[in-house]
Structure formats: structure tokens, C-alpha cells
Nucleic acid binder design. Sequence first.
DNA 1: CACTTTCTGGACTTGCAGGTCCATTTTTTG
DNA 2: CAAAAAATGGACCTGCAAGTCCAGAAAGTG
Lengths: 213, 213
Amino acid sequence: MAPRLTAKGAATRQRIVEGAAEQIRERGATETTLDDIRARTATSKSQLFHYFPGGKEELLLAVARHEAGRVLSDQQPHLGALTSRQAWYDWRDAVVDRYRRQGQQCPLGTLVSQLSPATPGAQAVTRELLGSWQAQITSGIRAMQEKREIPPELDADRAAAALLAGIQGGVSILMSTGSLTHLEVALDLGIERLLVAPAPAPAPAPAPAPPPR
Amino acid sequence: MAPRLTAKGAATRQRIVEGAAEQIRERGATETTLDDIRARTATSKSQLFHYFPGGKEELLLAVARHEAGRVLSDQQPHLGALTSRQAWYDWRDAVVDRYRRQGQQCPLGTLVSQLSPATPGAQAVTRELLGSWQAQITSGIRAMQEKREIPPELDADRAAAALLAGIQGGVSILMSTGSLTHLEVALDLGIERLLVAPAPAPAPAPAPAPPPR
DNA sequence: CACTTTCTGGACTTGCAGGTCCATTTTTTG
DNA sequence: CAAAAAATGGACCTGCAAGTCCAGAAAGTG
């Protein structure tokens, strides 16, 4: 079934995925045809189907995987080591920068929406991306809690989920309006909420009764 | 240019928009063809182009406007009167409920991504929706500040922007993974942050400029 | 150096969705 | 009620993009 690839074959396959990713970043997934990809990557129709027997859908899925990898790697090394206040601020800047550069193109967004709502493959890719992203934020929060830079009673999982949601929303607003401010605000306020109390002293905090719910 | 519509014509046009909206909610924008809409609304090809001379793009734009209206009206009356703690909690529930019911279909999301990234018309629709949404949150925050339920030094605009970003992100994660928890967490933590300090404030508090829009 | 497998080129087929056209019916208007 | 304007039905056209096919070149394998 799975034909083994030679070195040359692997290179071609790679070239196709990367070229398709570029094309999609520039023109959007719906606007991208197999012929566009063919032209840009200097390949023939048969090569496309040779490496992606499932046709366009399989190719798009491969591109989605490729782009998902980029999303996380573009945030490194900060995201992987959120162990100091400075690291958090650097990470924040890296995220803002990445999306400023990317502008209004959301490769992943358009991809998954093109792959129809709930293609199992597409869901798996986003699920994995979001899961890994959130896990790294969570462990950053835990690290800061151990250093007493974040209150230990805070629920790291929920805080990470909220922060990730803010980022996602900021990005999605960037896509649809072109404005970067929501992403910035979501990150700034989200991080500020975490790091605001550097209290090394677990002194008697006269916290008022927490609200219902 | 603009042919005046008779009562019958307006009704037909309306029927087309609503039928198209339903179809798109069920099957997604990319999967919806003019023939699907034709069949569902019992119209002919010429009617579609009679009422939407710009073809599919114009029709999709009209549907987008229609759906954008629904997004806000589904949050009323809570969103329009965030003037008590209870109103905020009710609003929160209304939002969660709306998207729980909607499930993994995001009419607007798929619509704007189908209308290509940055069609001016599509941008205008989302821009207006987000603007109005955020403005209503902002004035809710201001109202609570006047009642001393939210600290007056808090920047209402930024807080509203962050909250809206959280909601958007929660929805977008719901679309791609089917999980509602991020939306819930974003709302819960976002509101909690605002309402946490019910400080009754000292008497001679000089009223902070209450510029109610 | 045979010979097998993988890789490549590109012409061809196919289906379908968007869009056009015009004839006919219904409604409005004076 | 007659002329004009709007609404409707549905056949038809057209282009394009996905997918197929097969023949031939290149690369590995013994």
C-alpha cells in the first residue's frame, strides 16, 4: 500500500507541501487549485496524485499538519520555557510578532474550514495543536507557581484555557478585521492577571468573598 | 439600478436569504450550491439572479448580514442591559446556550472565509458586528463602574476587547474541536476578573468621568 | 548489467456549479 | 382596462478544476 519513498521522492513530496502552503498563505485555500500548486512547485498532475492518492483533500491535510507545526515552532523557545517573568513577556512579543507578520492570512483557519467542518483528519490536527499549545502554557503557569510568582491556588488548567481562548479570538479578529489590538489586549490582560501579584509572602490576603459560581 | 421590490418580491427575497442561511448552517458554505438553495426555497435560477445580480457572492453577503443580526439578537435582552451582576451571569448563560445549540456550525465563520479573506463587503459585516458587540460590553462595564461594582480605574475598552477576544476564541475552538469548555472558561474567568471586587468605595469618591457614549 | 520499482510528463476525460437568456405570467400603475 | 414593470420557469451554455491514464525516464537492487 504505502510505497516506500526514495530520497528524491521524499524531496518532491516536501516541495509540494511547502509550495502548496505558500500558495495557500498567499491566496487562501479555496482560491488555490491543483494547477496553481503544480505551477509553483514545477510538478505534474501525476506527481500530485502519486504522492497524495487521496487527491486534494489528502494534500490539504498534509499542508495543515505542516502549518500546525509552524505555529508552535514559531513560538519557541519561549513557549517551551515559561519559567520567568521575562520569558512570559518575550513569548507575548513572539506571538504578536508572528501574527503581525502573517497578516490577514490564516493558513490553518482557511484550511480546516475548507476541509469541511468536521473532517476527522482536520479535527485531529487542530485538536493536537491546541492540546499541545495549552499544555505548554499550563506547565509554564505551574513553573511560576512553584517559584511563587503566581498564586498557588489558581487553577492552572483553566487559566491556560482562558488565555489560549483569548489568543485564538485575537487571531480570528485579526483575520476578519485586520486589527492586531485584540490579540495584544488579550495577551496583555491575560498575562497581567497571572503575574500581577508577585507576593512572596502568603500573608493574610483580605480577599472579599468570591462571587457565586 | 435598484429595481423597486413589490411586496411579493420582498417576500421571495427574504425566503431566499433564510433558506440559504438554513442550508449553510446545515451543510457549510462551501458545500452549498445555488441549486441546493433553489431546491430548498422553491425558486428558479432566474429568481436568484434577479434578486442578487452579483451572483453567489452577493447572496452570501446578504446571508452573512442576516446571520450577523442573529448573533446579537440571540444575546438580547441581556447584552443590551449589563447593569447588574445578575445580568452579567444571565448573559453568560445565554451566550453559552446559543453556541451549545448551534454546535459545530459557524455560519458566519464559514461564510466570511468563503467570501475570501478580505472581501471589503465581508470585512464590513464582521467589523460592524464585532464593533457593536464590543460597544455593548463596554457600556455594560461602564454601567457597573458607576454602580461601584467594577473598579473605576479599570480600562473599560480594553477589558471589553479582551472579553470579546476570549469569546471569539472559545467559539472558534468549539468549531474546530467540538468542545464547549474553552468558551465557558473564557467567559467565567473574564467576568470574574471584572466583578471580583464589589468594593463599596469610600464616600467622597469623585465620580470618574462617566461619558456614557 | 539486467530488471524491477519508483518517479515524472502531460494529454485527456468528466462532472458540475455558476451564470446567461428569453419566453411567459403576474402585478402595478395611470 | 391597457401598457409597463416586475416576477418567474427552466432550458441552455461554458469554463474550470479534480481526477484518470499511459508511456517513458530515472533510480534503486541483485
